[in-house]
Design a protein around this nucleic acid. Structure first.
Lengths: 205, 205
DNA sequence: GTCTATATAGAGATAGAC
DNA sequence: GTCTATCTCTATATAGAC
């Protein structure tokens, strides 16, 4: 596959694509090193274990996505502190934008969808410890946008939003294969459709 | 575990619980037969292969859920053909009701969440061939409930609903462990919250 | 219908040469 | 940093006795 990168990066790219397709348990290190055209022992040399390889695949994309979400949230609040749609865009757009990434971000969104279904304690703790502050911050800001909504109802609705976003992201790859629409157009369409849907759902009385 | 059922049923119950916890590839037949307290060879005797065991786990619950959804849809339409909330309830309630099932339906909703993340062609074709007519029928009826909504927007929003429902179902098990609320109360709360959220989202202009 | 025993293959991980 | 070779374990599946 990508032959112009280091062994470590080739392993990460290939693992990401295979994890998206076959899951974590369903992907063997032999498949990874075979497709990446590196030696079998290279995974244990560079990452120590398969578990560590999994978390490194997440770290690479989650660092970037979390940074983008918080930055866009800050920008939205600077303009209009309680504008619901702008806050939702800050949460949704960086996630869907990953689908456009040249270096395999489209595979990562499907990896992320798998992570939600996983009950793997190690992975869940890694994601919660390192990136849990992002949804918490959005939850805080959204509560300010919707002062009349009780906290419990807000939390239910945020769970629904997370589910819709995850599903939209994971399905996005399939839609692309279906029609031949421009990738950027698809992603922007998905984002604005979801912002409108979620905003109306969150405002429901 | 359930010692008062046949070997075949014990295998199905145990496989369902383990698939929910560790995924399909992550669950070995040795784990299944060990927890079910049956012989290792019994799986291949009763189901032929691991793949067949997976589809049989789905068939048992999906038959019941699809039947309940279509029946409730028919009842709703007999009363008021284009009442959006009633149609949504027919789609949502049978799915969340599975969480209450004594015989492990709570595990199955997490298995279902995993199925969405899977790209396994065999499993996808089985589900699409056998149960694809249900979402298609709901899509048709919802289009009648929302005559001013263009088809493409409707399909986006139905994808969001499917994602929110899947996520809510899968997460439901976690919530239950968190607080000590009555199971039936929890499920009914989840269903009515999602109906309100989805109805508002679908009606958004 | 259930068992033991085993065939066959593939898994993750590591030792040690280069 | 990369290789070969291999250890050890576990996987699915099946043959054949009871």
């Amino acid at each position: 596959m990508p032959a112009h990168f280091s062994t470590k990066e080739r392993i990460l790219d290939t693992a990401e694509a295979l994890f998206a397709e076959h899951g974590f348990a369903g992907t063997s290190l032999r498949q990874v090193t075979g497709h990446a055209d590196v030696n079998l022992a290279a995974v244990n040399y560079h990452f120590g274990s398969k578990d560590n390889l999994v978390t490194e695949v997440f770290r690479r994309r989650m660092d970037e996505m979390s940074r983008a979400r918080l930055q866009q949230l800050q920008a939205a609040q600077a303009q209009a502190p309680t504008q619901l749609e702008a806050v939702l865009r800050a949460f949704i757009e960086p996630a869907l934008a990953l689908s456009l990434d040249r270096q395999g971000g489209g595979a990562f969104v499907r990896v992320l969808a798998r992570a939600y279904a996983e009950r793997n304690e190690r992975l869940r703790r890694f994601l919660s410890d390192n990136y849990g502050h992002v949804p918490r911050e959005f939850s805080r800001v959204l509560a300010e946008c919707l002062p009349d909504l009780d906290r419990e109802t807000l939390h239910w609705r945020l769970d629904f939003l997370a589910g819709a976003l995850t599903y939209a992201m994971a399905d996005f790859g399939l839609r692309q294969r279906g029609d031949k629409l421009d990738e950027r157009t698809q992603s922007e369409r998905a984002a604005s459709e979801l912002v409108a849907f979620a905003a109306a759902g969150l405002r429901a009385t």
